[in-house]
Design a protein around this nucleic acid. Sequence first.
DNA 1: TAACTATTTAGATAATTTTCTAAATTGTTC
DNA 2: GAACAATTTAGAAAATTATCTAAATAGTTA
Lengths: 96, 96
Amino acid sequence: MAMNQTLKAISDPVRRQILELLKAKSYSAGEIAGQFDLSQATVSYHLKLLKQASLISEHKQKNFIYYELNASVFEEVLTWIYGLGIGGNDHDKAHH
Amino acid sequence: MAMNQTLKAISDPVRRQILELLKAKSYSAGEIAGQFDLSQATVSYHLKLLKQASLISEHKQKNFIYYELNASVFEEVLTWIYGLGIGGNDHDKAHH
DNA sequence: TAACTATTTAGATAATTTTCTAAATTGTTC
DNA sequence: GAACAATTTAGAAAATTATCTAAATAGTTA
């Protein structure tokens, strides 16, 4: 179930862009929304889904809510992909 | 664009199950459909999406169409995930 | 405490995705 | 070539997801 949520979360391009943004540093909800041509409420909805999937976490400061990336959740996805037997070359299969 | 299609494709549990099934060996469309409590047409639809994402390929034999897994497509996804900076431990980051 | 700021929640609509049944296609066999 | 078998395509309905505007929350500051 957890993986389904993770994969659903990253299947949307807006949400992937949010993750990419947070790769550098944490941003407030407003700052994140500012990057998109979408309403604040819509971005808030995407943040909620990412949060539910544990791909991001939040911490409040003043009256801002800052979001940060939590990429460790991808472990399960990687295990699944490697389990399928990657056809590629560059990635280190040995450990999987 | 390619990655979006890949991630959309694997965001559905039925399609992931199809990939898992094909991990062992190739199966005909009918054999695949037999694994699910869904109509043949619905499974055919899922196979089409997987095919469009190049996650599977087909080869005809008699009047069967056999499908096989093509996991090499995951390369791009893995690169993206590693680019995000995996928080885990077990996976070999060095190459990414 | 009143006004303000940042963000979320509610409720509605639009868009996309999944599913079904029925019909069409493609290839096989008698 | 007619009947059959495996699969896909078409078209419609159901379910889910993404989006918006307006209202509600919660925390801050004057």
